[in-house]
Every structure is written in structure tokens, then in C-alpha cells.
């Protein structure tokens, strides 16, 4: 098993784990953490790809750096929103009743 494949599989596992968390965890903080785990999975994969040919490939490294910046921005925004929700609702979760359901106003 090549090291690139190890990276790739670990990355994929992290991605799936994160995705499950993002969808299934009700607590917003956990959702946000799960998103970051997903991101890490992808970055790991890219870093693995970069090492494939003897000399490191700079392009994926640059992509990971950019990705990290984007992820930080997204996380910051998510935390700010979660904080506001906490102030208003007193808890860090999305109101349950309408989640994923269509509104049937009658």
C-alpha cells in the first residue's frame, strides 16, 4: 500500500465521518466541528497527492492553504450565527419542528 493511498483512505474516512456528523449531530457546535473534520479529510487527501511523485508538488499545497483560509472564514461565520442563536433561543441547536420538512401552510 503506497503512502498516497493511505492518505487517501484516511482522508475519505474522515470526510465520511465528518459528513455523518454534520448531518446527524443536533448540536450546532458539533456540526461545525464535523464540518472541519470533513475539510481536514479533503486536505489530507490533497497533501497525500502532493507527495506522490518524489518531489513535492506545490499546487495541492497551495490549494490546501487556500482551503484552510476558506474553512476558517466559514467556521467563524458559523460560530457567529450559532452564538446569536444561543442568545435568542437559549440553546445551540436548530429548532426541530421544520428541519428538512416542507411547510404545508393550510
Amino acid at each position: 500500500m503506497s503512502s498516497a493511498l493511505v492518505y487517501a483512505l484516511t482522508g475519505a474516512a474522515l470526510f465520511v465521518l465528518g459528513m455523518a456528523g454534520l448531518i446527524l449531530q443536533p448540536h450546532l457546535l458539533r456540526k461545525i466541528l464535523a464540518f472541519n473534520i470533513m475539510g481536514s479529510g479533503i486536505f489530507l487527501m490533497l497533501v497525500g497527492v502532493a507527495q506522490r511523485a518524489g518531489t513535492p508538488d506545490p499546487v495541492p499545497q497551495a490549494m490546501v492553504l487556500t482551503g484552510i483560509v476558506v474553512a476558517i472564514a466559514a467556521t467563524a461565520l458559523a460560530l457567529a450565527l450559532a452564538r446569536q442563536l444561543l442568545d435568542m433561543n437559549g440553546e445551540m441547536r436548530l429548532p426541530e419542528e421544520k428541519t428538512g420538512k416542507d411547510r404545508l401552510d393550510v
Binding site: 454534520l22 464540518f35 490533497l46 499546487v59 482551503g67
Partner: peptide
């Protein structure tokens, strides 16, 4: 939207791979 773009980015990573 984060879920969507993460899936997209994973696809990009695979393509680059």
C-alpha cells in the same frame, strides 16, 4: 452550502489525484 461545497472540493481533490 458548506456540505455542498465540501463534496465539490472532495471531487476536485480526486480529479487532481
Amino acid at each position: 452550502t458548506l456540505l455542498g461545497s465540501s463534496a465539490y472540493l472532495l471531487g476536485v481533490a480526486l480529479l487532481y489525484g
